[in-house]
């Protein structure tokens, strides 16, 4: 061995160098690769199950807490967001504050790109109710901006869905806030 190392050292050294550039662990045996695939498939199958179960639990929770005949859901959308950088929203139903939210940059961007946030879900008796939304942010010319919108609506025996819309109004370069009822 010693003789061998002595006589062929430069070649051996180079060969060792070359061999070491290919990490030993990269030489995966087929069995190990198969096991990896099996774990990956197992994880994917579990993810499917987790989504299905989360769906069932979500629906179950809604059925328990917010039955369809009393449920009211309020969504928030931001169309364009050119004239308003959304900071916060407060929601009042029948003179009681039921929801408030401060927006991170990521959430505000998600809204501007077409997402809709479910701001509030609760229960209301059938009859007429008053809803008011207060929207705060940075408006045109980088000035603090605050605007409110109200809607009187009748809650029937079905699920009620309302949307707070923050839109750009090109006529006066101002944002506008409105509440609309979804059929």
């Amino acid at each position: 061995m010693a003789t061998c190392l002595n006589s062929r050292f430069p070649v051996l050294l180079a060969a060792l160098t070359l061999a070491l550039t290919a990490p030993a662990f990269a030489q995966t045996n087929p069995g190990a690769e198969k096991d990896d695939t099996a774990v990956a498939e197992q994880v994917e199958a579990l993810k499917k199950k987790v989504i299905r179960l989360n769906r069932d639990l979500f629906i179950l929770e809604e059925d328990l807490l917010f039955p369809a005949n009393t449920q009211v859901a309020v969504f928030l959308s931001v169309d364009a967001g050119k004239f308003l950088k959304l900071d916060a929203v407060k929601l009042k139903v029948d003179d009681e504050i039921v929801a408030s939210h401060l927006y991170t940059e990521r959430q505000a961007k998600a809204l501007e790109r077409g997402g809709m946030q479910r701001l509030y879900v609760g229960n209301l008796k059938t009859g007429v109710h008053q809803m008011t939304a207060f929207v705060e942010g940075i408006g045109p010319d980088q000035r603090p901006y605050k605007q409110a919108a109200s809607l009187e609506f009748e809650k029937s025996t079905g699920t009620a869905a309302l949307e707070i819309r923050v839109e750009d109004r090109s006529s006066d370069y101002q944002p506008s806030v409105s509440i609309v009822e979804w059929e």
């Binding site: 959308s77 959430q107 790109r113 997402g115 809709m116």
Partner: peptide, 25 residues
Amino acid sequence: ERAEDLRYGWVLYEYHQGNAFEALT
């Protein structure tokens, strides 16, 4: 121009935040 289905709007809200699990749910 805007989501025509509230649930889809909600999906997009999670999707654009990178919340894949919530959006898939």
